[in-house]
């Protein structure tokens, strides 16, 4: 059985996923070695059980992210914080010096061109957490892949290690923030 791999997009810009696609022809090689069971680039509704490796992009910034993170943790053997937002909060966390109210007011009232109002139906919308936080402050994380975004080479190194059944410890050359 091929290792079951998932990728998740939380509070981030999807840049890390774009970088994943930059693997180009190496993607084909990867596809041979693993089974992609969940990803924003694949149309699968529910996060599956018994996942070997999950790459999580983005910070935990709203209630949905938080809930999701716990589900992912329970169903994944191995979790990689994928990119700077998941690792440090990065750009997502730049809002942290303001309160959620201030941010919503700024975005939905002050900058609104028409019909200014703050969304308040939290039955369908996720609520902003007080602070955006890196993934490992919310759940246990097993490895970190840095960069904004991580380079395709970094991702390749990490993925190939993982698929060989090894925890990737990045060599210093791949340790790179920003």
């Amino acid at each position: 059985m091929k290792p079951r791999v998932a990728t998740v997009w939380l509070g981030g810009c999807s840049g890390c996923h774009m970088s994943f696609l930059d693997l180009d022809e190496r993607l084909i090689e990867l596809a041979d070695k693993m089974e992609l069971v969940y990803s924003p680039i694949a149309d699968i509704k529910e996060f599956p059980h018994n996942v070997d490796v999950t790459l999580v992009e983005g910070a935990i910034t709203n209630s949905e992210n938080e809930e999701y993170a716990h589900i992912i943790r329970k169903r994944s053997k191995f979790i990689v914080a994928f990119g700077d937002c998941a690792t440090t909060g990065n750009v997502t966390a730049m809002r942290n010096r303001f309160t959620p109210d201030e941010i919503l007011k700024r975005s939905y009232i002050e900058l609104a061109e028409k019909n200014p109002q703050i969304p308040n139906d939290y039955t369908t919308l996720a609520q902003l957490l007080k602070k955006a936080r890196p993934l490992h402050e919310v759940i246990k994380v097993d490895a970190w892949l840095h960069g904004c975004p991580p380079t395709a080479d970094q991702i390749w190194f990490a993925m190939t290690s993982l698929l060989e059944g090894k925890i990737p410890v990045l060599p210093p050359a791949y340790l790179r923030y920003g």
Partner: peptide, 10 residues
């Protein structure tokens, strides 16, 4: 330093 174990103070 691959990650920071202390909560960010922001």
């Amino acid at each position: 330093l691959d990650h920071v174990r202390f909560p960010y103070l922001y």
